[in-house]
Design a protein around this nucleic acid. Sequence first.
DNA 1: ATGAAAGCGCTAACAC
DNA 2: GTGTTAGCGCTTTCAT
Lengths: 341, 341
Amino acid sequence: MTRKTRATGRTTIKDVAAAAGVSAITVSRVLRTPERVSPATRDRVTEAVRALDYLPDPAASALASQRTATVGVVLPSVTNTVFRDTLRGIYTEAAARAVQIQIANTRYDPGEETRAIRLFLSQRPAALIVTGIDQSEEAATLLAEAPCPIVQITETGPSAHDMMIGFDHGEAVELATRHLIAAGYRRIGFLGARQDPRSLRRMEGFCAALRAAGLFEPERVLFSDAPASVTSGAEQLGRLLERDSAADAVLCNNDDLALGVLFECQRRGLAVPDRIGICGFNDFEWMAAAVPPLTSVSTPRAEIGRRAMAMIGERLENPGMAPEVVQLDVSLKIRESTRKR
Amino acid sequence: MTRKTRATGRTTIKDVAAAAGVSAITVSRVLRTPERVSPATRDRVTEAVRALDYLPDPAASALASQRTATVGVVLPSVTNTVFRDTLRGIYTEAAARAVQIQIANTRYDPGEETRAIRLFLSQRPAALIVTGIDQSEEAATLLAEAPCPIVQITETGPSAHDMMIGFDHGEAVELATRHLIAAGYRRIGFLGARQDPRSLRRMEGFCAALRAAGLFEPERVLFSDAPASVTSGAEQLGRLLERDSAADAVLCNNDDLALGVLFECQRRGLAVPDRIGICGFNDFEWMAAAVPPLTSVSTPRAEIGRRAMAMIGERLENPGMAPEVVQLDVSLKIRESTRKR
DNA sequence: ATGAAAGCGCTAACAC
DNA sequence: GTGTTAGCGCTTTCAT
């Protein structure tokens, strides 16, 4: 016995092959391309797989085929409700296909994003989903050369690496701002939290709409360093009113802030919508349930996740496909909080 | 040239070895156990790794070593804020260690949970994190025989598969219920959403506390089929008041429901806390910011994630370690919503 | 401290 | 439609 062997105790494809009286490659074919195997053989193999409770080793498969069934998802945050909804969409669609999801959390740091992309690519993912359009130069190069489908989500823009699905953040906020102006508000403030690229583009949409109406006033644009929260929304309303005690509406860069603003108005006895109008962004579930119901920009977060995954699925089935770039619509949910009398 | 080769274009450990003038195994050692390599060799190899921009192939490594650096996390939901916070804790701690996270979303289905555990185990994870203590018999067997550390999170209980970290859900709600009784409420309702095992144990804690005080009334216990939401909290308050128009407090099985109850009270002009007392569960950020601030049971969600990951790290470094079972404390945040005059 | 050889479990390539 | 053979890139084992 000079043979050395590293027995792992694992049930392997050879065990199944032996049990079914075929060769290993036939088992492999039954599992991956059953249509290329005769029905009789297929049944025997299937039965042996079940009898032995065989599960293929994904590492061996990845090594041999240079492919995995893992889709890497690069997100700036796993905490943020926005991405939570997108993730839900991704998981929903992934469940239908035989893919695994692996998430990298970059904490809004381009360096971490680049590292995550490198790491994912070293694992030969089936596809990659990355957030936004502001990758570092290095990351952009990696993505350009990547041998797998790439979907950029959340935002659309020029020069897609491959596929893209999202909406125009600046335009979405312009829409909301024009609504506030049309509703009769004149001294409108903007409350923002973390300044990621999409927040900034939303702020720009706000400024553009007000400038067009001759109502822009930079001191009414506030950003806090803290991540968005209900508490910080309340605080920021206070700061806005210190700067302009006659401010009559706020566009909140997200709904946590809007809820905080509502509470602060209740605390100070400021009537919503007559004294202060409130508009949020994202249309989280509580906006419609609040008293009064709060106007918000409804964003297709789950749909982005779902369709990103669906686009990947289609591409994997049909690699020749032209890369899609999908621009989704947002809709403004006008509710009582901006119905000034 | 009859040799057939499946050139992948990838930079491999052999390329690094050649560049550094050593053998492949030495490169492997520098990467995994640098202390066993002489400093001079180590430097040459490190330099070659950088020069060639070498990243090891995790699939090849997994196959050869029968190990991966992936920690599988089995969660009933990626949507629920509770698990979002736990995930944040897991990612926070994982960033410090060189592990990847892979999440399986079971949608509260024991069958899917079992399948997810089987699938993870077929990938030889570095460790597994599973939610709760109610695994199927099959899953329990798999976990018992698993060759890697296991942490059960969110809840503690008897017969841990291995390690455990969580808190006692029944006791947490008993605490809150006793507070409501002590605050002077007598006709207390319970509002619940999805009936997962932990929700049920919380409801039992509620019932136990009321029975002990002679105040239990089954018709004041409500569960909805819908997942927890602000909207459903508002609806359920309505249903509770239909059943008992003199109900004077609600214990909400989570904070989304509590927020909905607050809004419904505002809508109906029911004074909080004097006409209706409100207590939530989890202490989400908005509870303290609401008007009035809402009492809630603060649960250590992020800490559970963080420490679960930390326990895994310690165990991987020191496999002899005795399995820890950690029971964390919850604390009741008493706020104005239960300060009846 | 370093290396040679073998093998982890699977699939690509080619043959029949 | 099925099988043979080699090899994916790494690490284990054993030797020096």
